[in-house]
Amino acid sequence: MLKGIPAIVSPDLMKIMMEMGHGDEIVLADGNFPAAGCAQRLVRCDGHSTPQLLDAILRFFPLDMYVDKPVVLMQVVPGDLTKPSIWDEYKRIIQRYEPSFNGFEFVERFSFYERAKRAYAIVATGEKALYANIILKKGVITE
């Protein structure tokens, strides 16, 4: 164990974040997402919610401020009446760490799957909310 690292951040997850470079993407996948089938590198975080993990990750993980939208969400499928309230929670968490955050990019479901397949890693969560999948693009440390 180390000081200052939330217990929810496993050694595997910390290693993945440390290995990632500028522009690499990490997916936080909800419990319904086909994570094992899409992942190049899979980190299991079953039993944890995506907001808990997002908050813990953003303590260490800079978002890419050289792109317009460094955070990506899966678009609600046309005809689905779901209104993902978890997105508001994500926005509050992100703004705590990145005050200049200016909104999400929304990607169609199957395009999201294809993008996830190219991501550096996928973190499989136990999140039960629908449309709770989120992609983070890594930025640079400027300090």
Rank of each mutant, 00 (worst) to 15 (best):
E108V: 15
M1A: 06
Y97A: 13
A29V: 00
R59I: 08
E89S: 09
V27H: 03
F106C: 11
S10H: 05
D80S: 08
M18W: 02
S49P: 03
D55K: 14
M74Q: 11
F106G: 10
P11R: 09
T142D: 04
I86H: 14
T142Q: 12
R92A: 14
R115Q: 12
G31Y: 08
D88V: 02
K128E: 14
E19I: 04
Q52H: 06
V140S: 10
E114N: 13
M20T: 03
M20R: 06
A56V: 04
I93Q: 11
Q52M: 01
S49N: 04
E143N: 09
L136F: 08
H48Q: 05
I5V: 15
E127V: 04
P84N: 13
I5R: 15
P62F: 04
M74S: 08
D64A: 05
G79C: 07
P99N: 10
I135M: 04
K15I: 00
M20H: 01
M17P: 11
R96N: 15
V76H: 06
M17L: 06
D24L: 01
I8H: 02
S10K: 06
G23L: 00
S85N: 01
M14L: 14
I135W: 05
T125I: 11
F33Y: 05
V27P: 12
V43S: 15
N32P: 07
T50L: 07
A129I: 09
G139P: 12
A116I: 00
N32A: 11
G23F: 01
P6I: 05
F106L: 15
L54W: 01
S85T: 07
F110Q: 12
G4W: 08
F61M: 07
I16A: 12
D12P: 02
M65A: 07
R41W: 15
H48P: 00
D12E: 15
P51F: 00
G4T: 02
D55C: 08
Y113R: 04
H48L: 05
I134W: 00
N133S: 08
G47S: 12
Y120A: 11
D80V: 01
L42G: 07
T125W: 06
A35G: 02
P62H: 13
D80L: 09
D88T: 02
M14G: 05
L13R: 15
T82I: 13
C38M: 13
M20E: 13
M74G: 06
Q52F: 04
Y97W: 10
T82M: 11
E89V: 09
S111L: 11
L54T: 00
I94A: 03
G126V: 03
G37S: 04
V9F: 12
G21V: 11
F104N: 05
A29W: 00
N133F: 05
W87I: 02
K117C: 02
